[in-house]
Design a protein around this nucleic acid. Structure first.
Lengths: 299, 299
DNA sequence: AGAGACTCATAAATTCAGTTTATGGGGTCA
DNA sequence: TGACCCCATAAACTGAATTTATGAGTCTCT
């Protein structure tokens, strides 16, 4: 039986958050745009489904139970992920007649832009944003061709013809499954060790790989990869199942590190750090919606 | 119009992930337990809803489009949050006749345990886990009374009568809204500055507050709080809206930091670090399911 | 070249869950 | 005590997602 049969749907989770906010089923119902009986029945069936009482009903309102508070926090994380999904999807959808066209590298589009777009929508609700994902070269080409208003890149250098400002930092981390021997090391890895070990990596040309190549060049360069995979997710999956150590953006593995499906392996003496930059065609700072988005995230 | 009208439901997102995995609508359908036409129609309506083509259908299978790959990654994050919800809820539900009863402090129960429980279920699918959340004292009492088999605490000291092992580390971070003046500082805060400034904090008695009090004791102790709130989420919300700087567990604010709704303010010379420990009644290491869970996450 | 196995799309009937409208019971405050 | 808030229940309705049944296209193997 799959997840969707054991987890309430998004509407129910939103309703639960609304109940937590308002302290009343009826007001929560109005907030999410349904009637009070509908809310009552929905919360009730959610409690049946989870087998736990979530709210204490009283004639002067409803308060979360202790279990309800815990469940609400988990629900909040699901809803936040859904908001990020929505922000990204909306950007993707509005590609036609949009007013702000953003081009971004994969890591940024995946992990950071959705959050920024939520914030942008909170401040400028009627800004329609479109999003295109590609590597640095594609982002630069899009900007110079006038097909995008603002770009985000993660490479080492700023592409020719663009101005840039650092908006965030990213660190590459070496990760391994908890069962891997590197996970039990006390001493940090030396760069030479890292360079000499076959790793699970993104395919050649990715931003991650560029930085890693540059950092390890003086230590004899990267060994031939153990596996070369096409997506960050595939690399993570391979590392989790113990195929071998991998090097990935910190942004991509926070979840796995927190839940200990992966363990970070410290490395000494190498700069596996990279700046994430906003870029635009050489000239004055962007204006209008691009400026708004830019000012939300400044490194 | 609320989120749930713009975001596909969890079943649809799971289906999309299955399509990405299998490269075929039909096989994905079998994977999630529906028929092929249902999958076809579901993906189609998801594409209508998002206004973007997600998969390239061909007579020998379906591959994600570029936009589809991006959407799938966002979908994966929603599904992962839902899995964490499920793991937590399941633990909560099975509190009656369960074989492994866990008691944990709030931060750990909220942010770490769901991930560990997912991992545990992957290895030992038929272990029923129950979860109780409370402060260190409650966790200790539960263990000593034989009402819990394994505990997790985040205080500074190990409660009397318990043995402990460090399973993870947590760092307290000072955060502020991007509009706050601290967000623009170049120089790190001094401990004295931090101690002298009224902050948004959890109420007295929380683990976070304990550590902070201890660390700043020698600098004159904590100033009277700006706001004292009952939950981590409330503190975050207050900080995001610019009420003032807050001090929170790193685990609780990764999302906000990544999306730049909050900015970390560096502090020099104070140990805002705390160990997260697994605890059990003094004596031999736990055995059985408790040992399994313990071995998943070892600091 | 034709048979079989695979792919996905379409159509019509069915089923089921969630909703609204309407009502009732219980508590609180002037 | 009457007005107003809270929530629960019942019954009818609505609509969306599903299943079964079918068709059409492509590739492979004989």
């Amino acid at each position: 039986m799959s997840l969707s049969h054991r987890v309430p749907d998004l509407g129910a989770l939103e309703l639960l958050l609304a109940v937590a906010r308002h302290g009343s089923l009826g007001r929560a119902a109005r907030d999410v745009g349904i009637t009070q009986p509908a809310a009552s029945s929905r919360i009730r069936s959610m409690e049946r489904q989870l087998g736990v009482a979530l709210v204490d009903r009283s004639p002067r309102g409803s308060r979360l139970t202790a279990a309800g508070a815990l469940v609400t926090d988990w629900a909040r994380r699901v809803v936040e992920a859904a908001e990020a999904f929505d922000a990204g999807a909306q950007a993707l959808r509005d590609r036609r007649d949009s007013r702000l066209r953003v081009a971004a590298s994969m890591t940024i589009a995946e992990y950071l832009l959705p959050g920024w777009l939520i914030a942008l929508r909170a401040e400028r609700p009627d800004t329609a944003v479109s999003l295109r994902a590609g590597n640095s070269t594609a982002v630069a080409a899009g900007l110079l061709a006038g097909e995008a208003d603002l770009g985000y890149v993660e490479g080492l250098a700023v592409p020719e013809g663009l101005d840039a400002v650092v908006v965030a930092h990213d660190r590459l981390v070496v990760v391994a499954a908890p069962s891997h021997r590197w996970a039990r090391r006390r001493a940090p890895l030396t760069p030479a060790e890292l360079a000499a070990t076959p790793l699970v990596l993104r395919e050649y040309g990715s931003g991650t790989r560029q930085v890693l190549d540059a950092a390890l060049a003086e230590y004899g360069g990267l060994a031939d990869p153990l596996l070369e995979l096409a997506s960050t997710t595939a690399v993570k999956a391979a590392a989790v199942t113990g195929a071998g150590p991998a090097v990935l953006s910190e942004l991509a593995v926070t979840e796995e590190l927190a839940s200990r499906r992966l363990v970070e392996v410290p490395v000494e003496g190498v700069h596996l750090h990279r700046a994430l930059r906003a870029v635009w065609p050489t000239g004055p700072l962007p204006t209008g919606p691009a400026r708004d988005l830019l000012s939300l995230a400044r490194g």
